[in-house]
Design a protein around this nucleic acid. Structure first.
Lengths: 139, 139
DNA sequence: TTAATTCCTCCAGCGGCTGGAGGAGCAAGC
DNA sequence: GCTTGCTCCTCCAGCCGCTGGAGGAATTAA
């Protein structure tokens, strides 16, 4: 099975430019080339790229993915480290949700108080002008 | 009241480098300079920068803030446009929370299924390798 | 053979800053 | 008046994770 970068792109849903970028940053290995100098991929590349794509979709950073790929290549190791990376990311996502939820409450209150009059009396503008108007000071 | 960029930074909590950046991108006006060529700010600058900072903390994009600032300068206009910008942003935040929450569920399931054995049998790695393992296909 | 398509490399740009280099201004102490 | 140390100046590069364009070479289809 010898696949062009375009075909690899089609099978994984990752843009060809992005595949080359992954090669640059060391997520994908430099594949063999055809006589004409074009990248030629095999089944292992498809699997690896699918792994990367999925991890990215789940929000893992490139550095974390590099670690996960390294661990994936050593199936005999205990998976404690995998667990650490995933839990760290989960905590990070939790934090993001929390911050966004607090922010959403503030925004929603602001919008709800807008009396649809003139800008000069608009609560949205007032709240933005004065941080003291906010419920939470976390942001 | 004549204030240096450092003092402005202290009063608003915005880094001096960031203030200069805001000037570059047109959020802050170019202030008058001292004889020695240093930026000199007044009360209006402090208020404007506080407004910008607060809007950024609430997640508004720089483009949206530019619009909000322009509207703020025209208090006689109806505030419908302010409302549109704020509601648009609220919807955007809602979308982000929704996506993150779905992602969190997937991550949490993954982590929960990890049997703390070897990498070769780790569910986290398996799920990452095979998108079919996921509950939602939204990501 | 020619035309269309795909691929190549290199480089720049997105957003929203942040930091460093290398230099000049300025306030306070001696 | 001079030095020391701080702040400020401009310019430029880098962060993350891509994305797209220019200009050219290779491949494929008609």
């Amino acid at each position: 099975m010898e696949i062009s970068i375009g075909e690899l792109s089609k099978r994984t849903g990752v843009l060809a430019t992005t595949v080359r970028y992954y090669e640059d940053v060391g997520l994908m290995p430099a594949p063999p080339r055809t006589a004409g100098g074009r990248r030629s991929y095999g089944q292992a590349h498809v699997a690896r790229l699918a792994f990367i794509r999925h991890a990215r979709q789940l929000g893992f950073e490139v550095d974390a993915i590099r670690e996960l790929l390294a661990l994936n290549a050593r199936p005999e190791l205990p998976c404690a480290e995998v667990d650490v990376i995933a839990r760290r990311h989960l905590a990070e996502v939790d934090g993001r949700i929390e911050r966004l939820t607090a922010l959403r409450a503030e925004l929603s209150r602001m919008v709800g108080e807008c009396g649809h009059g003139r800008v000069g009396e608009c609560r949205v503008i007032e709240v933005l002008s004065d941080h003291g108007e906010c419920l939470g000071d976390r942001h």
